[in-house]
Nucleic acid binder design. Structure first.
Lengths: 335, 335
DNA sequence: GTGAAAGCGCTAACAA
DNA sequence: TTGTTAGCGCTTTCAC
C-alpha cells in the first residue's frame, strides 16, 4: 500500500501538503493539488483505514453476533444489517456464537478492544436458558452500544428490534378458528427461545379465548428428536387434529407433508400456518401459508438504530424498541 | 477503554514499563510486574487492537465476500471460516456481494485499504457470467492473498477450495442408472454458475456413457420462473421420466413433492437425488437422498490455506487447489 | 530495572 | 501556500 509519506517524497513536498491536497483543502495551490491527485490516482492511493481508526478513535465497524448462521431468519437479518451498514460506510465483523453463552461472551470481549464501535446481536439459546446478562451490561458500560434483535434480553437497557411474535401467532390461530378448525395443534422446535415462548402464548390466548378446545402443544427437542417421526406419530395418535400452527418453518413443512402422507386433504381437511420464509413455502404442495418476518427489515432497522446512536455524542439517550410487524401470506395450505 | 498511558500515570511509572510488564518482559522487576498486572486486571485493560494493527501492519482480520448469505451452502462455509479463523485469533469482516459484480469489486476495493490481511471469497454470479477477473488480479498484486471456494475463477492464480461437482453428479446419475431408471431428468436452478455447469456435465457424461437415453435437462430461471409450475408441467408432459437428479436443493425437493402430488410412488416408481443439506432432506416424505457438500469443511480448509499463506513472508509460494469430496447420503427417495 | 524516544499512517492546529 | 509538530496507542531499541 502506498502511503502519504511515499507520495510526499516522490513529489518533493511535505506529508501534510499531500494530505490536505487529497482532502480538497482550500489551503493548497491548484497546481499542487493537481499534481498530488494525479500521482495518488496513478498509485491507487487509499488512506489507511487502521491509521484513520486510531486517529479518530472510531473504526466504522459494527460487531454482529449471530447465534446460528444456518437459520434463514438470522441470515436474512445479517443481510439487512450488511446492506444498511455498507450504505453508511460501515463494515461488519461477524461472529457466530453457535448458541453458546461462552462463545458469545468471548466474541463480545474480543471485539471490545477497539475493533468495533458497537454491536448488533441476537441472544444465544444457552444465554436465554441461563438468563445471563452481565456480559451485555458490562459491554454497554464500557461505552459500546448494543442493539438486540429477535431474541432479546429484556432486562438489558438497550435498543431492540423485535417481531410481534405474540400477536402474529394469536392472529394466525384465530384465522384457523375462523376456518372452523376444531382441534388446532401448536408445533414448535424452538421452545427454549424467548420468541418461541411468545409464539406459544399467542396460540394459547387465541385458543383459550375461543374456549372450544384445550391448547394442544407439541414440542420438538432440537437435535434430539427425529422431527418427522415425532410429528407423524403424534398426528397418527391424534386423528382429530385438523390444523397446525408452527413456530418454525421446519415444523410447518414437516407437518404439512406428513398430513398429506397420512392421506389428509390440504387444505380441505387440514390447514397449516407456519413462521417461514417465501422459499420455504415452495417446499410443500400445496404451498405453505406463512407468517413472514420481514427479516431484512429487522436488520436494516437494527443497523440504523445503532448507527444513529453511535453518531450522537451523549450515548445515553433513551433506549427504543422497534417492533417489526409480521404479515401473513396466504397460500394454499389454508382455506 | 483504558490505555497504557492511564495505567502508567496512575502507577507513577513510564508507559514502556507498563507495556513490558504486561508482556512479561524479563527486564522489569517482580514487584513492578505485580503492581502493573493488578491494576490492569482491575481496569480490565485490553491492548487496543487498532494500535496493534497499525504497529504490526497486520490486522488479523480476514475479508470474506459471499454472493448470497441465504444459500445454505455458502452460509455453512461462512460458519466453517469463522470457526477456523476464531481458532487462530482472526476476525472476519463479511461482505455480501448479492451476486453483483459491482458490489464484489467495491467490497474488494474497500477492504484493500488495510482493513484486512487477505480474502476468502466465492465468485458472484454476474462475475461468472461476464467472466471478469481483473479485480481479483489487482487485489492479489497489491499483496493481499485470495482464497476462492466453490465458485472459482480458474484463470486467477490463487489458492482454491472446490467440490468434486462433476464426479458427484456423474456418480449420482450412475447410481440411478444402476437402479434401472430409464429416463433420468436433470433439473437445475443454477445454470449460470460454474458449479451448475460442472454438475450438468457430470450428468451428461453418465447418460452418454450408458447410451440408453438422451440427456434430458430442465433449467429453471432463478427468480423468473415459478419453480413448482415449471417442474410440474414438465413432469406432466414427460410421463416417462422416472428419476430426477437435481443440481440444487430446491429443485430436488420440489421435484420429489411434485412426483408424489402426481400420484407417483417414491422410490418405487420414481427416484430423486439432489445436492442438498441434511435439514433439506427432512423436508420431503420420503426423506431425500442427498449429495452432501461438507460445506463446513470447505470453509475450514479455505481459512487454513489463507492463514498459512498470510503467515509466510514470501507469499509467492505455489498456489494449491483442494478438492473437498462430496458424499452421497442414501435416504428413502432412491432404491 | 526503568524510561525516553522513534515510528506505524494519518489529520489538524499552528508556524512560517 | 506550504511545512512542522503533536498525538491517536502500542512496541521496541537504546540510554541511563
Amino acid at each position: 500500500m502506498v502511503t502519504l509519506k511515499q507520495l510526499a517524497k516522490e513529489l518533493g513536498v511535505s506529508i501534510s501538503t499531500v494530505s490536505k491536497a487529497l482532502n480538497n483543502s482550500e489551503e493548497i495551490g491548484e497546481e499542487t493539488v493537481r499534481r498530488v491527485k494525479e500521482l495518488a490516482e496513478l498509485y491507487n492511493y487509499k488512506p489507511n483505514k487502521v491509521a484513520l481508526s486510531l486517529k479518530n478513535n472510531k473504526t466504522k465497524t459494527i460487531g454482529v453476533i449471530i447465534p446460528n448462521i444456518l437459520n434463514r431468519i438470522l441470515a436474512k437479518v445479517l443481510f439487512g444489517i450488511e446492506t444498511e451498514a455498507a450504505k453508511h460506510g460501515y463494515n461488519i465483523i461477524t461472529c457466530i456464537s453457535n448458541e453458546s453463552l461462552e462463545k458469545e461472551k468471548q466474541s463480545l470481549q474480543l471485539l471490545a478492544n477497539g475493533s468495533v464501535d458497537g454491536f448488533i446481536l441476537s441472544v444465544a439459546e444457552e444465554t436465554q436458558i441461563k438468563n445471563e446478562i452481565e456480559h451485555f451490561k458490562k459491554t454497554i458500560s464500557q461505552g459500546l452500544p448494543i442493539v438486540m434483535f429477535d431474541r432479546v434480553a429484556h432486562d438489558v437497557m438497550c435498543d431492540k428490534v423485535i417481531v410481534d411474535d405474540f400477536d402474529a401467532m394469536y392472529n394466525a390461530t384465530k384465522s384457523l378458528l375462523l376456518e372452523k378448525r376444531k382441534n388446532i395443534l401448536f408445533v414448535s422446535n424452538i421452545n427454549d427461545l424467548s420468541v418461541g415462548k411468545l409464539r406459544e402464548r399467542g396460540y394459547n390466548k387465541a385458543i383459550l379465548e375461543h374456549g372450544k378446545q384445550e391448547p394442544l402443544v407439541l414440542k420438538i427437542k432440537k437435535g434430539k428428536d427425529d422431527h418427522q417421526k415425532v410429528i407423524k406419530s403424534f398426528l397418527k395418535k391424534n386423528r382429530t387434529v385438523d390444523a397446525v400452527v408452527a413456530a418454525d418453518s421446519s415444523s410447518g413443512i414437516i407437518a404439512l407433508n406428513t398430513a398429506i402422507n397420512l392421506g389428509l386433504k390440504v387444505p380441505k381437511d387440514f390447514s397449516v400456518i407456519a413462521f417461514a420464509s417465501k422459499s420455504d413455502s415452495h417446499h410443500t404442495i400445496p404451498k405453505l401459508t406463512t407468517i413472514r418476518q420481514h427479516a431484512k427489515a429487522i436488520g436494516v432497522n437494527a443497523a440504523q438504530m445503532l448507527i444513529t446512536r453511535m453518531q450522537k455524542e451523549h450515548a445515553n439517550a433513551d433506549v427504543k424498541t422497534i417492533i417489526v410487524k409480521t404479515s401473513i401470506v396466504k397460500n394454499k395450505s389454508t382455506l
